[in-house]
Design a protein around this nucleic acid. Sequence first.
DNA 1: CAAAATACATACATTCGTGCATGTTTGCAA
DNA 2: TTGCAAACATGCACGAATGTATGTATTTTG
Lengths: 233, 233
Amino acid sequence: MARKTREEAAETREALLDAAEQVFRAKGVAHATLADVAHAAGLTRGAVYWHFRDKAALFEAMCDRATLPMETMFDARRPAADVEDPLGVLRDNGVRVLLHLASDARMQAVFDVVFHKCEFTDDLAAVSERHQQEDDTCQQQVIALLERAVVVGDLPADTDTALAADAMKAFMLGIMHEWVREPDAARLAATAPAMMAMFIAGLKAAPPRRAPLVAAAKPRAARVAGGTHAGAD
Amino acid sequence: MARKTREEAAETREALLDAAEQVFRAKGVAHATLADVAHAAGLTRGAVYWHFRDKAALFEAMCDRATLPMETMFDARRPAADVEDPLGVLRDNGVRVLLHLASDARMQAVFDVVFHKCEFTDDLAAVSERHQQEDDTCQQQVIALLERAVVVGDLPADTDTALAADAMKAFMLGIMHEWVREPDAARLAATAPAMMAMFIAGLKAAPPRRAPLVAAAKPRAARVAGGTHAGAD
DNA sequence: CAAAATACATACATTCGTGCATGTTTGCAA
DNA sequence: TTGCAAACATGCACGAATGTATGTATTTTG
C-alpha cells in the first residue's frame, strides 16, 4: 500500500527471510514460488522483488543470515598455535557446534533446507561456492589444530592431518544431516559429547597415516614424477 | 514412430533411466524437464509418459535401479549371530560399501542426485519413506553386529548400540555425501580402510554408554525444571 | 512545504512445463 | 492374414510462475 519507514522496511525484509525459511522447508526451494513466500509473510510478490533480485538472491540472503553467526563462532577462535590440548579443543568445538544447532531453530531450518530441500545447480552456484569457501577455512582451522596435536605429541608425526580433518567434517556433517530430519534437541545435546569423544578417541587410537599402503615402507626408489601424486595405482 | 520388440522397449526404458541420471545430476530433479530427459535419450516425452507415470515415478525407478544392488549387498550377509569378530565385519562392510561407491558410476550419479540435486518434499514422500525403511533395516544389521560385539566382549555391556549405529551411519553418510561432490575413485579407495579403522578404533576406545549424563552419576540434586533440558551449559 | 525517492501492491504479458488426446507404425497372436 | 495392442511421436490446451511495468501512498529530504 504505502511506504514504510526504514526500520519497518528492515522488519519486512526479515519477515520475508523468515517466511522463506518456512516455505522453502515445507515445499522445497525450487518448488516454492515467490508468491508463497510473500503470502506467508502477509505480503505480495512486489515486496519480494523490491528487497531481492530473484529467488536465488533470497535464498542466498537466507543462508547468510544463518551461517554468518557460525562463521564468527569458528573464526573467533584463537590462532590455535599454542593450545596445550588441541584435540580437546577440537572435541569441544565440535560439541559446541552441535549444541548450537540443537538450540537455534533458525539454523535448524536453514540446514534442513540446504541438506534436504534444495538443489545445488548452476543458478545457486554462487551460494555453493561460498559454502565451499567457508568449509575450506573451517577445515584449515581443524588441520591447524591437528598439526598442533602432532607437535604436542598427541598424534604421530606421519598423521595424515588433511584426511583426519576430512573425516571429522564428514562425521559432523553426517550427524547434522541426519538430525535435522527429526530434530530432538534434548537427544542431540545429550549425545553430542559422547559422539565427539568417540571420534577423538578413534583419532588417537588409529590415526590415519600418510603414504597409506601402496608405495610401501621402502620400495626401490622414490622416482615418482608428479610430486602430488595420489599413490594408489 | 513405430512399435519396438519387447527387448528394445526394455532397452529404451533403461536409456531413459540413464538419461534421467545425467539430466537430473546436471540440472536438478525439480528444474529438469521431462523433455530434457527424453531428448537426452534421443526420444520424446511420449516415451517417458509411456514407461513412467510422471517425473516422480521416473525418479523412483532411477533410485531403485541403483540402490537395490546395495540392499542385496547388505541383506545377503549372514544373520550375524555367530561371527567371531563382529567389529571387524562391521569395518569390512563399511569399506566394501565405500569401494562399491568408488567403482560404480551409476551409484555415484544417483547418490549425487539424492544428496545434492533433489528436494525431498511431499511428491517424493514415497521415495523418502522407502529410503527410510532401507536405512532402518541396515541399521538393524549394524545394531545386531554391535550387540554381538558386546556378547563377544569387544564392547562393554552398557554400550549404547543404537547410538553407535547412528554414529556409524552418520560417518559413512558424511563421507559419501562429501565425496560425490568431487569424485576421486583412487583416493576414496585408498582412504576407506583407514577411515573405517579409525571409526572402529574410536568405538572400542570410547564406546557410547547408555544413561548418558543426565540423571547423572551422583550430583547434588537433579532438580532441573524442563526435564528435557540440554544439560551442558 | 513541495519534490523526489521509497516501499510496497496490482496488473499484465510472456514463457514454460505438464497432462492428455490423438496419430502412426509395427510386433505378435489367433 | 487379419486384428489388436504395444511403443512410441506429435499436437494442443491449460495452468502456473516469472519478470516487469505501473499505480499509490507515505516518508524523507532540501
